[in-house]
């Protein structure tokens, strides 16, 4: 992956991802109650909170896999929560990695990664396969290109999923609890790939409870509770000196 874009004064001010007053209703339940967030170019932002606090729903609103009921999302200064926006091209520019990998079981690892390049990016098939292969090599799966998902371990499947996002050359990647479905011994191989991405300047929003990983990698931590942001700040500060009692309670329960 290429390094972070040159930090021109303009790019420094316009965030890569900005959320303005996001609300989300599921039927009568109000799951997001006005969320604002800014993610700078090359920044890694962690979202934490108990289950049902709205962090995953918020993450899904950022590429409109879930439609926000109110509020706007801006990618690189462009409003994408607009009926005229081509939502498919927005999603092609923002990668997403799911908790249970969601690879396509009827395709090989290589085909999984090449699918978007062929059908969204409209690359010729052999060029797409070359790009897909290099993305898989980047996540350390050079020997597994022709395997189907059911022949791969959980950690390997999740790395294929990361390569699938990566191959699209996205502006940012959203991670929705990428390691919580993995056996403990496979967590590190996925976190290593994510750490490498972060050091290369990839903009990332990560829902995760891997404290040790977040402390090293995340620049900013946002705490969710009952559909609201209750605390945010530099990761080390929030982890070491939480201000909100709910944050303290939550972090205490994690240990």
């Amino acid at each position: 992956m290429s390094a972070a874009p040159e930090a021109t004064p303009d790019a420094a001010q316009v965030p890569m991802i900005e959320a303005r007053g996001i609300h989300k209703y599921f039927g009568g339940t109000h799951v997001l109650r006005g969320i604002d967030a800014r993610v700078a170019h090359g920044e890694v932002v962690a979202l934490m909170g108990r289950s049902g606090s709205g962090k995953s729903t918020f993450l899904r609103c950022l590429n409109r896999i879930e439609e926000p009921s109110e509020g706007d999302v801006l990618i690189d200064g462009t409003i994408i929560t607009d009926l005229r926006t081509n939502v498919n091209s927005v999603r092609a520019d923002i990668g997403m990695v799911f908790q249970d990998y969601n690879l396509f079981p009827h395709m090989t690892a290589l085909e999984n990664v090449a699918l978007g390049l062929i059908h969204v990016r409209k690359r010729p098939r052999n060029e797409a396969q070359d790009l897909a292969a290099s993305a898989l090599i980047q996540v350390g799966l050079a020997d597994h290109l022709a395997k189907h998902p059911n022949q791969l371990s959980g950690g390997q499947q999740q790395r294929v999923a990361i390569a699938r996002s990566l191959a699209m050359r996205p502006k940012a990647i959203l991670f929705d609890e990428p390691t919580s479905a993995l056996d403990p011994e496979m967590v590190h191989e996925v976190l290593d790939v994510m750490r490498a991405l972060a050091s290369e300047g990839m903009t990332m929003v990560v829902v995760s409870h891997e404290i040790g990983f977040l402390r090293k990698v995340a620049d900013q931590l946002i705490m969710f509770d009952a559909g609201k942001v209750i605390e945010r700040g530099p990761t080390a500060r929030v982890l070491d000196a939480p201000e909100h009692p709910r944050t303290r309670e939550f972090l205490g329960a994690l240990k």
Partner: peptide, 27 residues
């Protein structure tokens, strides 16, 4: 077919028809 398969396909940027044709129907 698990709904997450469609979500996953859409998150790459495939249209609903493409997701149906390339991901759901073959399975």
């Amino acid at each position: 077919i698990n709904r997450n398969q469609v979500l996953s396909a859409r998150s790459i940027g495939l249209s609903a028809w493409q997701a149906m044709r390339l991901v759901v129907l073959p399975q």
